[in-house]
Amino acid sequence: MDSTQKPPARLLRTAWLPVTTALMIAAALALTFFYAPLEAQEGFLQKIFYLHVPLAIVTLCGFVYGGLLAIAHLRTREVRYDVRSYVAIHMSLIFGVCVLITGSIWAKGSWGHWWVWNEPTLDSFLIIMLLYCTYQPLRFAIEDRERQARYASVFAITAGAFVPMAMIVVRLAPQYVHPRVLSSANNLPAPMGATFVVALLAFSLLYATLWRLEVRVKLARFRLRALQRLALERAQAPLRAPLASPGAPLLVPSTASADRSSGRRRQLAERGEVIVP
């Protein structure tokens, strides 16, 4: 589909998302530092709020999105849904690390400790991250490709459903009886609320951009591996039955280890500089 379109149309199709993302992030940063007023209690430190909370929301939505894509995968059995689900969770893990680190920095600035146990959202976030940290080890400990995708989808759905449950149960826990001071997006003054919404939109777009990038890279790698396998088979075919398939394409494989040196030697051989036995 892409190849039939004219270059400008293709560029528009692929470039609008990153460009919009860059503009929105610039806008969010500008609003955060030059428009949103200083918060009364926290002062300048509260600027972390516009980074930390949107990132956390996007991360959790990404985990749930990965679960929904996993449902689509189990229903349709199409590999692309598995790839999308994997990438959604992978992106969320990366964003989640950002959330934990920025939250920790905020806690240090605000309360003087790198970690505090009085913020239920942060604590449930840690539990959810602990669970999702096992996603990739589980996935890559299963050899068979189809089974790997299926089991990973089961995990993604279970964990996606766990996300809201963990948030709710942790919030009910008795140690959080004190009223919460921070990270509540309710009852913000209007300029702060607007900045927050723009930041949330910006980080959602960042997530979408990176998600699309990685999905494309992964699908391209799948296609490449398929081509390489095909090339290997065709290259071996003439040796086994040279007369039976005279027209078999002699694609030379470039898999695995032999690549670079022999690729160079091939180029030299083509120019007649090296005699290949």
């Binding site: 490449l224 081509l227 390489q228 090339a231 290259a235 071996q236 003439p238 040796l239 394409p249 002699l250 694609l251 030379v252 494989p253 470039s254 032999a258 690549d259 022999s262 690729g263 030697r265 091939r266 180029q267 051989a269 083509e270 290949v276 036995p277």
Partner: peptide, 25 residues
């Protein structure tokens, strides 16, 4: 790029290519 180069090389000459596949295998 390597795959494409191999595909193109196939059209250049049968001799070098078959020698090449032998070497590579």
């Amino acid at each position: 790029g390597e795959l494409a180069a191999d595909a193109h090389a196939r059209h250049d000459g049968e001799d070098s290519i078959s020698a090449l596949t032998g070497e590579r295998l």
